[in-house]
């Protein structure tokens, strides 16, 4: 494997983590997951409904995805910790996408509750992947207290606004001691590519695929965008500059003026000034 992603000792080939929320049906979800090439997929824990047809666990088994339970819908550290423990019982995994939100309108993380929950879960042996604000200091705290990955948002969940503060994200990435996964806000493929070009280790997204008009096609676009962005990051982009820098060498530019050189032939009509060689580039 050329360039694997390693989280808490687990190796992944794909750098796209998919959420499963928002899909119109389990069939559409399965097609999208397969097209995305993802190896890890989030699920939520909710009340069972008698007589429910099909199971998302069967879908994940068929697609071959590792399951990452989340604590979506939790507003307090207490609820998030309880939900994580229930998820550990239900799915036999100590991996958890920790999500503690502050309010329904923005779904932004509650930094204080998030930090408390992360500490409790790490101490209890969980492998915590923390959904966090794009706050470099909070991200550093989460990594220092033992989270296996920090997952800053690009913009609010489901907003599709992409990365609204690339500068904060750059700082988070620059100081990171654990993998950084962009989580939330991706609207289309270019957003995922930008995240990877900035140096994120992976991208987690759901709505951008599940709510697209053709989820499977968008899933394929996301897979390619994440791959392209990663390659571009590793390749190293050129610096931005205000003015042009010619890619064609200035040496060897021909003299295409329409008058003979001085003194070799008699001039025809009005003489014109020759163009200095080496000035025309492009």
């Amino acid at each position: 494997m050329d360039d694997p992603l390693v989280i808490a000792g687990q190796t992944f080939t794909s750098r796209l983590v998919m959420g499963t929320g928002g899909a119109a049906s389990l069939e559409a979800l399965e097609q999208a997951l397969a097209a995305s090439g993802t190896e890890m997929t989030t699920v939520a824990l909710r009340r069972t409904s008698p007589g429910a047809r099909g199971s998302i666990l069967d879908v994940l088994r068929r697609v071959g995805c590792r399951l990452l339970p989340n604590t979506a819908g939790c507003f307090t550290a207490r609820d998030a910790v309880r939900t994580a423990k229930l998820a550990r019982e239900a799915f036999d995994t100590d991996w958890i996408k920790l999500e503690v939100i502050g309010d329904d309108r923005t779904l932004l993380p509650d930094a204080v509750e998030l930090r408390d929950a992360a500490e409790t879960l790490v101490d209890d042996g969980f492998t915590v992947l923390a959904y966090t604000n794009d706050d470099p200091v909070l991200a550093r705290h989460l990594a220092e207290l033992g989270c296996a990955a920090v997952m800053p948002l690009g913009s609010p969940i489901g907003s599709g606004m992409g990365i609204t503060n690339p500068y904060n994200l750059r700082i988070i990435i620059e100081q990171a001691t654990v993998p950084v996964i962009l989580d939330a806000g991706v609207g289309t493929a270019s957003d995922a590519a930008i995240a990877m070009e900035l140096g994120c280790d992976a991208v987690l997204l759901a709505s951008a695929v599940t709510r697209a008009q053709d989820p499977a096609l968008m899933a394929e676009a996301m897979r390619k965008a994440v791959e392209a962005g990663r390659l571009a990051h590793r390749a190293g982009r050129i610096p931005r500059r205000l003015y042009a820098e010619a890619s064609t060498p200035a040496e060897g530019v021909p003299d295409l003026s329409d008058r003979p050189a001085e003194g070799t032939r008699e001039p025809h009509g009005e003489p014109r000034q020759p163009t200095a060689p080496g000035e025309r580039v492009g």
Partner: peptide
């Protein structure tokens, strides 16, 4: 009693 299972999310 809360009886919980996997559902789409996140």
């Amino acid at each position: 009693l809360e009886v919980l299972g996997a559902s789409q999310g996140g």
